[in-house]
Structures are given as structure tokens and as C-alpha cells.
Amino acid sequence: MTATIDTMISRLAAWLSRHSIDVLRVSLGLVFVAFGTLKFFPGVSPAEALSVATLEKLSLGLLSGYAAQAVIAAMEVFIGLTLVTGKLLKTGLVVMTGALAGFFAPYALFFTDLFPGAPTLEAQYIFKDIVLAAAAMVIAARALGARLVPVREPLERVHELRERAAA
């Protein structure tokens, strides 16, 4: 029974090492496509006002209003499509690096508005971008050549360790 469980665990680890980063890449891409698409339609994105205000400040007023929103939307959809398809992935990851910097910029630019006491809904909305940044790091590591490889210990060694632990 234990050998069967060990075999199942080894197979699961091998499957996860082969597929989990690709699943992460595609799911992150879908998130970017979804949030980016919302921004093409004025008044639909819950982060519209904050994202426009942020890009207005970061561009020193060169981009404002719907033009700023359209640039953000196009950038997010482009990032998402590169992640979903795997095409131009390194380019998409470079663009994502800039986008993630922009995602966190409101904390520096509008801190007192985001934290008048308790964090506002917008502050909490931005906070989730920490997870997006961490996922981007894993995907970038893979794109730059890193590999996730399961540890393979001989089953005899695993059984030996279990017997010692039980004793």
C-alpha cells in the first residue's frame, strides 16, 4: 500500500513539475485579459479612476482621461495575450514589469487617499497585485531557463526514513 502511495505521489510531483507553471502562466494571462478588457469600457472597471490618476501623474500629464485608460487597457490585454499564448512571452514579461511598477505606484502617489485610516477598497484592490507579481516572478524564471524538477529519492530510502520515524 505504501509503495502505491509513493508511486502516486511521485507521478503527481512529476505532473506538477511539468505543467503547474504553464497553468499559472495561462491563468495569470486570463486575469490580465479580463481586467484589461474591462478598462476599454468607461465606468466598468472598479479601478478606473485610480488607474487613470496614476498614469496621469506618472506621465506628467501627457496622458489623461480615456487616453490613459486605453493605454492601460491595451497594455494589460497585450500582457495577458502573451501569457496565454506563450508568444512574445519575454516581451510581455518586460511590459508586465513596467505595469507592476505602475500597479504599486498609487501607494506612493496617493497614500493618504488609500489609507485615510483603514485601507480603502482601492488599497485592498492593489494589495492583491502582490500575488500577481509573485506569479510573474515564477513565470519569468521559467522563461529565462529555470526548471521545476521533482526530487526523486529511491523508494527504499523513503521507506527507511518512515520506519525510523515510526520507531
Rank of each mutant, 00 (worst) to 15 (best):
A134L: 12
L55P: 00
D129H: 15
A101Y: 14
L144H: 11
L148Q: 11
A118T: 01
T2L: 14
L55T: 04
L121M: 13
I5M: 04
R142E: 09
L144I: 01
T120P: 12
A3S: 13
K39W: 05
A105C: 08
P42K: 03
P116Y: 04
T7K: 10
L28Y: 03
K90F: 02
Q69E: 12
I9H: 13
K39D: 03
E56L: 03
A136E: 00
S10W: 08
D22G: 04
L81W: 11
R142M: 05
P46F: 07
K39I: 03
A165V: 12
A118Q: 07
L161N: 09
A3E: 06
G117A: 13
K39N: 12
L60M: 06
M8T: 15
F41I: 14
M96F: 13
A70G: 00
L16R: 15
F41R: 01
A70V: 10
A68D: 02
I139S: 00
L100E: 11
E56D: 06
T4C: 00
R18G: 02
L83E: 07
I9P: 04
L30H: 03
G98N: 14
R11N: 15
L81G: 07
L38M: 10
V77Y: 10
A166Y: 04
Y66N: 04
V26A: 06
V71K: 05
S51C: 01
L121D: 14
R11C: 15
W15F: 14
T85Q: 09
F115M: 09
A165D: 07
G36M: 08
F111C: 09
I139M: 01
V138T: 14
V31R: 01
V52K: 01
G80C: 13
K128Q: 11
G29T: 09
S64Y: 03
L28K: 02
S27W: 05
E48S: 04
S51N: 13
L100T: 15
R25H: 10
Y66S: 06
E163K: 00
A146M: 13
L62A: 15
H159P: 00
K57N: 03
S51Q: 11
G102F: 10
L60I: 04
T4M: 07
P150M: 01
L63G: 02
R18D: 05
V44W: 04
V26D: 02
L16Y: 13
